[in-house]
Amino acid sequence: MILAVLFANNDGNILIERFHGVPAEERLHWRSFLVKLGADNLKGAKNEELFVASHKSVYIVYTVLGDVCIYVVGKDEYDELALAEVIFVITSTVKDVCGKPPTERLFLDKYGKICLCLDEIVWTGMLENSDKDRIRKVIRLRPPTEA
């Protein structure tokens, strides 16, 4: 299960968050935990450089893309390797939508589209789509060209 996908800016403000199977009262804890993790480690990190951590049986893979920090939290079958796959799809799609690693402003400009992409990538805690070209099409309800 992918428990959470979080986008935050460099100051730790949440831009987008999606939780699956995380009780509402635990979300605040996760939010602050992830933001602190990013503040401790992401300073000076290169774009898309992956960071990984585990907390009990939960895995966290996170990275920075432009002005945006992205965190993915998972457990069970979504261990660090599967999460790396998920975050790769997310970063490549965001780059695709924004045309480059986004500034915070650019990210917010493309906010609606990014929400749609995320909806295609992760749904009910599962990785659903993993191909950015396909995602680009399906968010406009265009049929993807299948190989």
């Binding site: 450089e49 992956l50 960071f51 990984v52 893979v61 660090e80 390797l81 999460l83 790396a84």
Partner: peptide, 8 residues
């Protein structure tokens, strides 16, 4: 070279 692989 991939941190996730090293971690795993």
């Amino acid at each position: 070279s991939k941190p996730v692989l090293r971690f795993a």
